[in-house]
Design a protein around this nucleic acid. Sequence first.
DNA 1: GGTTCTAGAACC
DNA 2: GGTTCTAGAACC
Lengths: 204, 204
Amino acid sequence: MASPVPHAPAPAETSRKINRSTRNKCPPPFLSKTYDLLEAEEEKRGGEEASEIERKKIVSWNSQGNGFIVWYPAEFSEIMLPKYFKHSNFSSFIRQLNTYGFKKTASKRWEFQHVKFQRGYRHLLAEITRKKCESSAFPAYLKASEEHKCRAMEEENTRALMMLMEENKNLRREKTELQMQIAHFKTIEMKLWECYQNKVRRLC
Amino acid sequence: MASPVPHAPAPAETSRKINRSTRNKCPPPFLSKTYDLLEAEEEKRGGEEASEIERKKIVSWNSQGNGFIVWYPAEFSEIMLPKYFKHSNFSSFIRQLNTYGFKKTASKRWEFQHVKFQRGYRHLLAEITRKKCESSAFPAYLKASEEHKCRAMEEENTRALMMLMEENKNLRREKTELQMQIAHFKTIEMKLWECYQNKVRRLC
DNA sequence: GGTTCTAGAACC
DNA sequence: GGTTCTAGAACC
């Protein structure tokens, strides 16, 4: 990936180095709008006739152009958000930033960054995706179900163990009985043999 | 619990109906401050010398006195929050409200309610507790450990099952061997008997 | 996919 | 216990 030139808007709009996989793909509307919003705000400087308050930048790219800063959250929420989104709720805006993997990069300012959200690189927006909702791969009800499965498996194992132990006990008993039978047979055999020999001896 | 009188501040401050379990207990600072903040805002009406903007209510009890409304989140955050808390972050304030079990009760307004947060019933604040953090009873690392325990138990069960199955197989084999021995004995016995009878018959 | 409400978790 | 950042989940 070409690295953005610090302090200078890159000629990205005319770049042809477009990733094949994202060529022709529209970026998510949220990202386009946020990018638009920054570009529009950037243009405020130009207007000679603009009043001081209108020229005050509410939001802007940061100095490196690799992130942006909401300087006035109140004005941003009340004036800018409704122009681009269906609400004027700062929290909702931040929720979306998090959904797309932006990070807040300063503790005292509302500054956010994303590696593929760079001034002059609008085409990179198409490569930003919503965070894999881990809950869609493993949502809460599945976690519960996971616990449930654990218990179920435990119960099943317990049943299997008990059946095996029962069978085992029976086999042992049968084994003992058979061993007793054999002992009995041995006794009988011995007696028979004795008897036979006695008979034979006497008769001979 | 005494139910608050709608549309009329109750004489709670002088009430002696204090729950024994919470008597003398300080309410959480967050709740006291939020209550204070509403009371202070209420007093604005009085001041004759107060300018229009100073009299504008940024936040107030709702009409029933069973909740409150932040009318101007921006001013509330920038002006009021820092007076009472260590920040001017509306989200942080809301996070706290949620921690103490407040609910947002209107979709288009920042109105919040809690059954024990009522105008005129400051003593009820002491009965509000932080939500049981389910993760403190069952935190993430325990969940992981829970999964681990599940796997461990499964492995143990599997080992037990395999040992039992092995023992079982041996018992079956022994049983078969014993049954064969018995069959053999029976044959011998029969032959011995035949032999005996033949011998006896011939000799007699 | 966007918006809203609430909670988890780390850090203070 | 408070503050911050981020995520879960329901609803639209």
